[in-house]
């Protein structure tokens, strides 16, 4: 019942009830000749968790990767539109992409610790960005980041051991600690729990909830229960179009668009 060639109804976007951290307007993205995003207008609220949901290929991850210009690494990708972080155009030629990615960190689907020690995984970012004044300052950053990521107690006595020796859930928390270490403002998470068991997933979800006091978080997830549990705001994408965005509770109890309704109730996708 949903096809792209029909005239699409306008997206249903409920206004944000707090400050805006990221404002996207008219975002279109092509991979070569194929258009993957169509005129996406979406605000991400500061110190909130925004969940991006939708069936595979709907553009949710593509949109997420626009926010820290990860799509720049794909030669065929072309982005048109306006994305602002605290009002600053992140696609402006004046923007240093490395600096942008320090402000907007990312955690991926599969935990991807560097083949280094636990300590060096976390210390890597602060070192290359020159954030630590001394060895003891760096130690503090590592400890603080691991504590924030809820991993400190488990790894405090084995910091020199390789990060790859940790369990999957621990590795993912290590990646979150690594993202936190450079003091980003925004953390993007692309299906951070899809490779984890339910207990490790619950830990990460608990962590996401803690992190939102200090960071703005946007998370792509295939689990609607997870979106419902961790986020305050949910945006539903379908076929490259933003269909509906609003308070999470509303999206999962009384969505306004029929397509959202069909998706969240398991009728397609």
């Amino acid at each position: 019942m949903v096809t792209t060639d029909q005239a699409q109804p306008k997206p249903v976007v409920m206004p944000l009830d707090g400050p805006v951290k990221i404002a996207a307007r008219g975002v279109n993205l092509w991979y070569g000749a194929k258009q993957a995003l169509f005129d996406v207008d979406l605000d991400v609220g500061a110190n909130q968790v925004t969940a991006l949901i939708g069936p595979s290929g709907c553009g949710k991850s593509t949109f997420l990767r626009c926010i820290n210009r990860m799509n720049d690494t794909i030669p065929t990708a072309r982005v048109v539109g306006d994305i602002r972080l605290d009002g600053e155009d992140i696609y402006s030629p004046a923007v240093d992409v490395v600096h942008l990615r320090a402000r907007v960190g990312m955690v991926f689907q599969k935990p991807n610790p560097f083949p280094k020690s636990i300590y060096d995984n976390v210390a890597y970012g602060p070192r290359i960005h020159g954030l630590a004044e001394s060895k003891s300052h760096l130690d503090d950053i590592v400890r603080f980041s691991l504590e924030r990521a809820g991993l400190w107690k488990e790894v405090a006595d084995r910091l020199p051991q390789p990060g790859t020796g940790l369990s999957g859930g621990q590795q993912q928390r290590l990646c979150i600690a690594r993202a936190i270490a450079v003091s980003p403002e925004v953390i993007l998470m692309d299906e951070p729990c899809s490779a984890l068991d339910p207990i490790a997933t619950a830990r990460i979800e608990e962590l996401i909830d803690d992190l939102r006091d200090n960071f703005t978080i946007a998370i792509v997830t295939h689990s609607m229960q997870q979106a419902a549990r961790v986020s305050q705001r949910t945006a539903f994408f379908h076929l490259g179009i933003l269909v509906e965005a609003g308070p999470t509770e509303q999206i999962f109890t009384s969505p306004l668009d029929q397509r959202t309704q069909d998706y969240v109730t398991g009728r397609f996708g």
Binding site: M224, A228, F252, T253, T260, V264, T265, G266
Partner: peptide, 10 residues
């Protein structure tokens, strides 16, 4: 078993 949402949940 189904974790119903939206109209189904209602």
């Amino acid at each position: 078993l189904r974790q119903p949402m939206a109209q189904d949940l209602r």
